[in-house]
Amino acid sequence: MDNFMTHIVAITILLFLLITFLQSGIDKLIDWKGNLEWLKGHFAKTFMGRVVPLLLATILLIELVTAICCVMGIYHLIADNHTFYAVLAMFLACLTLLMLLFGQRVAKDYQGALTITCYFIVAIFGLYIIT
């Protein structure tokens, strides 16, 4: 219980990131075709338009790896007070959000970029407190 209380802020942020990336990854798996079609339209007038399937697969993979690292981070913070997976999860979350931000900026979707920035603030704060 001491480890839980010591890392309660980091654990809460990891839970937030877990929900965010696990839901997003599951949505991409369940509705791959719908996501792909929407993103093709979103990036149609950009240099990224021709590689949308590769980019979607890349984001899906990193989201799922991030979610797994969040679970492992929570477990290791509570069980043995080790921060490696928590740091890795928060770093991967930041990296993923930067990729998404780049895409939104390229597509000139500034409202979408603003939304991603809110998530990034949470992730970078988590990385700050755990290191």
Rank of each mutant, 00 (worst) to 15 (best):
I59L: 12
Y75A: 11
V122K: 04
F120S: 08
G49S: 07
Y75N: 09
D80S: 13
D109N: 15
G103Q: 01
L100R: 00
I74Q: 01
M90D: 00
Y85I: 08
R105F: 12
G41C: 05
A86T: 06
A44E: 14
I130L: 07
I59S: 04
N81A: 15
K108W: 05
T117W: 12
L60E: 03
D31E: 14
I124Q: 02
I8P: 05
N81R: 13
I62D: 01
M99H: 05
F47P: 01
A123C: 13
I62A: 02
T46V: 06
K45G: 06
F102N: 04
D80C: 12
L55G: 06
E63P: 02
L54C: 11
L29H: 10
L56T: 02
I68V: 15
F4G: 11
T83L: 07
A67T: 07
W38Y: 15
F91C: 03
V9M: 14
L98I: 10
T12P: 06
T12H: 09
Y75K: 12
L14K: 03
V65I: 14
F16W: 15
I121R: 08
L92T: 00
I19G: 13
M99E: 05
K28L: 06
N35M: 08
I13P: 01
A44H: 05
L101Y: 05
T96Q: 04
Y119K: 09
A79C: 08
L101T: 09
R105M: 13
L127Y: 06
E37V: 03
A67I: 05
A57D: 06
F4W: 14
Q104H: 12
E63S: 05
L60G: 03
T83G: 07
I13Q: 02
W38L: 15
R105S: 09
I30G: 08
L95K: 02
E37I: 04
K33G: 05
F4A: 14
T6C: 12
I11F: 06
D27W: 05
M90C: 11
M1Q: 13
L56Y: 02
I11P: 00
K40L: 03
A57Y: 09
A107E: 01
G34T: 09
L22S: 15
V65N: 01
I26D: 05
V106T: 09
